[in-house]
Design a protein around this nucleic acid. Structure first.
Lengths: 235, 235
DNA sequence: CAAAAATCAGCAACCAGCCAGACAGGACTT
DNA sequence: AAGTCCTGTCTGGCTGGTTGCTGATTTTTG
């Protein structure tokens, strides 16, 4: 499978765009009744399946992992949210309150703000620009999630992994001395849970990529030397 | 892989919820400057990659397939949108207009309404309830897309197919004399493109399911006899 | 601060599942 | 009636899942 011609255009939903609305939304949500600013330590749970869905969250710093836990103990990652992502959208849905069905965990140290869905609704009715901004935030979420679906439909694991690494570069990449470093401490297991593979396979494939000189891993942080070259690695 | 205990709760984003907002949104969008009601024949293109993204769409009847076409000629399905889905969200993103990067095709005969993003923005500013409804519509989209990600992370194709069929039941299912019929004419190829597999594999797996007495296929329409039993088919 | 515990990375052997490619017969379209 | 698209089946071959073990690294705890 080869990459689409317009691959780069999918970067349109980049960090820059939502940083603008995200920043403004922060100040707005902070003023709502019942809002709070929370600091969550790495690994701590934000909400659990079964909790009532009544708050909307805006991630300010760090990464949040949404996952589904199966009876077998297996766990899959549904989304890795980056800065300025809106989440807990379930609570926005019409009146009758439902329960969360995902597990939200702080993947890094997290700084986020949240407010009751009711307050958010009021705020929107009071000032329509709030709704517009949230709409843009959610649009970003949709586009990001769709990119992830593209990643997951790649048939061979190698392409899938590469595609995922590029997504991570987009969402969590910071410029490094040589290349781009993904600013997350990723275990092979965590990657496997995100792309529907196994720990062993990820170990092998990352080993391949490293010996090909595409990336470097230092204390669980991956540095991609040349994302463009990596994206060409599709046949 | 086994299904999560809370599987049924993910149905919270069911058709009922968005039918309400969808219906109201229709009348609102119809009144916007530059809005239009379009009928599109099965197989016709709604927008192409590279087209300017300037309109927002609301699907009223039928199904729309969003897909990505690769240079190799391969095509993968990013989303199969059902009634009352909002799409073309890219155009909602901040000012500077970008280009579509997905291919949107009418998967069935489609009835949809659309309006320029600018009109939508104005409408939201004029009446905040419009923003609220669109927000709910998009929230549904996010939840649907995330369910699809769950489907795609199943490791064996059999689970993946079953999970996909259940999603289709949720989104396109109509009660039949015995069981639920998915109201779409699905070729094996189309299914393969949606779950990242191949036509041949889908043929084999559907054959297995049929000989197990789980479903029936009549003129490309699949009827699931007992969705609950099917969901138990995970080991 | 060092010892203990837990988590993680790497390697190997085995084998099932799925893909590729090819072909024939059936169903639908026009 | 011809052509296109779709389904069904087969063979070989390889990817990637599974299991099990070892040493390294990180985190927790006394």
């Amino acid at each position: 499978m080869s990459f689409p011609q317009t691959a780069s255009s999918s970067q349109a939903s980049g960090k820059v765009t939502d940083a603008i609305t995200g920043g403004t939304l922060t100040t707005i949500i902070r003023c709502l009744a019942g809002s709070s600013l929370d600091l969550v330590e790495r690994g701590k749970t934000i909400f659990l399946p079964g909790d009532p869905a009544e708050r909307v969250y805006l991630l300010r710093c760090g990464a949040v992992r949404l996952s589904r836990v199966y009876e077998s103990g297996e766990e899959i990652t549904v989304a890795l949210l980056r800065e300025n992502s809106l989440f807990g959208v379930l609570s926005l849905l019409t009146g009758h309150h439902s329960d969360r069905f995902y597990h939200a965990v702080a993947f890094t140290r997290v700084e986020m703000i949240s407010a009751p869905a009711a307050s958010v609704r009021q705020a929107i009715e009071a000032d329509a620009r709030v709704g517009l901004m949230m709409l843009q935030g959610l649009s970003c979420r949709v586009l990001q999630t769709e990119t992830m679906i593209e990643t997951l439909t790649h048939r061979d694991m190698s392409s899938r992994l590469v595609s995922f690494l590029l997504v991570l570069c987009r969402d969590f990449g910071i410029p490094a001395d040589q290349g781009i470093t993904i600013d997350l401490r990723l275990s092979h297991q965590a990657i496997a849970e995100a792309i529907g593979s196994t720990r062993v396979t990820i170990t092998r494939l990352l080993g391949d990529l490293r010996s090909e000189g595409m990336l470097r891993i230092d204390r669980k942080k991956i540095t991609i030397f040349d994302p463009v070259a990596l994206s060409r690695r599709f046949s």
